[in-house]
Design a protein around this nucleic acid. Structure first.
Lengths: 259, 259
DNA sequence: TGGAGGGTTGACGCAGCGTCAAGGTCAAGC
DNA sequence: GCTTGACCTTGACGCTGCGTCAACCCTCCA
């Protein structure tokens, strides 16, 4: 007759595990000796070893009982199901591992490489870190909403950075948001350039975003994000309204531009 | 301003998850509106999306907070650690999968193929299912104790099944344990054959098990298992003692054989 | 004005044990 | 006979990342 620790040691498990199996009814409680100790027969060792064989193969404890009693075909079906689940789990972990490899590869926020390139171009142009950080957060939101589309858009966006007007706009915005003053003249200048760019885009039909434009929320969020980052953005939004444009992340011509 | 369900939907998580992140301090609690509802800013969306990026990469929630604040090298070290853990987990699951493939491959108890072959040979020889089941359980115990050695032993064990004496022994044992009588004459016959086989093995020096013989417990267990399966085995053990042998799974010559 | 569809906190449940806590028991050495 | 240390007992909380009630309040629309 064995004590619980001898039984556990033979099967290579802990005493706690054995008691757990008793609790969930997987291993029957043995007789107790005079002092209340559990005393195990050799058969219990076989039972426990068989339980561990299945458990080590990834079978959930809750199914082991049935599997030990099942006939061959039921058993085979269960085995197949377990294998499928293991496969799924492995696939999930491997997906995680690819994700984390991306994180390790340098871009700490798992943005698509095209976006990283775009942000680097902004820095090259002389855009301030604060504004770049704002852009980055914006693209995080965009990537969350349209994970696949973003990569298609980036080449176009990056090409636009060759436009001297756009460069000038970004530099003015950098100056505004790096300073602590409410420099209205600069804001007006920025609004003028932005309105001009919007006008060009509008005339060239470039402004069409397809079904993406149907979904207002992300663009509202982007504008709100910018205002949160710096309240002076609200002034800019107002200035754009005066010029007949609504929004910032996505500019929409107001129905009736004020005269 | 967003409600909790809008926030959750944008990040592709459940409302419950968002509340959970608040509880563990991962996402700061936002202001409440007049009726006590949580109201989220656009910045909260960015925070939540960033949390999910790390979580999807397999980073435990408890570490995400630190990682979002960490500098580049700390971040890289953490990423490496997570990747290692993911790798370990994948390896464990793949080991399970190999195990379960063995189970699916036919032997329902993950015994080595050599053991399965041995058990099949017993059946061919005419050994009863009950005795084969006993043998199987014995080999489960042996495999648990010496997982690697068992495969080495089986060829020898299987070869022994060519010995007509051993075949006869197994057949007699099968008859005994299939019947309901306490057929002592049969038991005596079995004991005589067993003693004779033991004597041969002893003289040929075959009985040496090396360091395996140092460990009594498994052999005691095997004998106990047999007695549990059928109390008549106890009679057999007694008969063997009379013939100067102790045990059954491992026969040991008694210091002073009775006269 | 009533009902559907939001929101709130609080609490249990899940898997498989690890890990105290607060004792009772056993075997061995003095 | 007594102490000591190792082993046994039950009971209960902890861990991970939420899912899922329960019981109740708030908002919006027909």
């Amino acid at each position: 007759m064995l004590t619980i620790s001898q039984l556990a040691a033979y099967a290579g498990v802990t005493v706690r595990a054995v008691r757990h199996y008793h609790q969930i009814g997987l291993l029957p409680e043995p007789e107790r000796d005079a002092s209340g100790y559990r005393r195990y027969s050799a058969g219990a060792v076989v039972s426990l070893v068989r339980i561990r064989i299945l458990a080590n193969a990834g079978v959930p404890l809750s199914q082991i009982g049935q599997m030990l009693e099942a006939d061959a075909s039921t058993f085979a079906a269960a085995v197949e199901e377990i294998d499928r689940q293991l496969g799924d789990e492995i696939a999930r972990l491997e997906a995680s591992r690819r994700q984390i490899a991306q994180l390790a590869a340098g871009d700490r926020l798992a943005l698509a490489p095209e976006v990283i390139t775009y942000l680097d171009r902004l820095r090259d142009i002389g855009v301030s870190e604060r504004v770049v950080a704002g852009e980055r957060d914006s693209w995080i939101l965009m990537s969350a909403r349209w994970p696949d589309r973003v990569r298609e858009w980036m080449p176009g966006k990056t090409a636009q950075l060759d436009d001297p007007q756009l460069i000038r706009l970004y530099r003015i915005l950098s100056e505004i948001f790096e300073s602590d003053t409410g420099d209205d003249a600069r804001l007006v200048e920025a609004a003028d350039i932005l309105a001009s760019l919007a006008e060009q885009a509008y005339r060239s039909g470039e402004i069409d975003l397809g079904e993406v434009a149907q979904d207002d929320l992300p663009f509202d969020l982007l504008d709100a994000l910018a205002v949160e980052a710096d309240p002076r953005v609200q002034r800019l939004l107002n200035l754009m309204r005066e010029r007949g444009w609504d929004g910032l992340a996505r500019l929409e011509r107001l129905a009736e531009p004020p005269t």
